[in-house]
Amino acid sequence: MVLKAYRGTWLTRLKTAVKEEHPPESFDSSISHVIADWVAREQPASRLAKPRAEEHIRGYLDAAFRVGRKRGWACYWTFWFPLSVVIIAIAIAILIAKM
């Protein structure tokens, strides 16, 4: 059940949330030739394009990473944390009963 909730609910929601951070269907003209030069791996174009292109792409990946972490924390606070609290509470109750 836990695995089903994990895969079916949280990861599906994650995929939808990441879509909002996707790059546009075409790059802006100011960056498109830089990206193309970067992919080309030709000297010296690629070396000059590398920092700009990688910084640009890293921006999209960072945004997706933040979305994943946010969803992770949401999962933690709504699922793992209450479960942990319940288990600790049971343990405390048993301890009190034994005393």
């Binding site: 994990y6 949280w10 990861l11 994650l14 995929k15 949330a17 990441v18 951070e21 996707h22 790059p23 546009p24 269907e25 075409s26 790059f27 498109s32 990206i35 193309a36 992919v39 792409i57 999209y60 990946l61 945004a63 997706a64 990473f65 933040r66 979305v67 994943g68 972490r69 969803r71 992770g72 924390w73 999962c75 933690y76 699922f79 793992w80 944390f81 942990s84």
Partner: peptide, 27 residues
């Protein structure tokens, strides 16, 4: 350029899952 955009989208999902799993592992 279209291929770069496609690959960024695929890797965004992988990166998001990594971020998600990091927190979930802590949980």
């Amino acid at each position: 350029l279209p291929e770069v955009i496609k690959k960024i989208k695929e890797h965004q999902l992988q990166v998001a899952r990594e971020g998600y799993r990091k927190v979930v592992r802590f949980g």
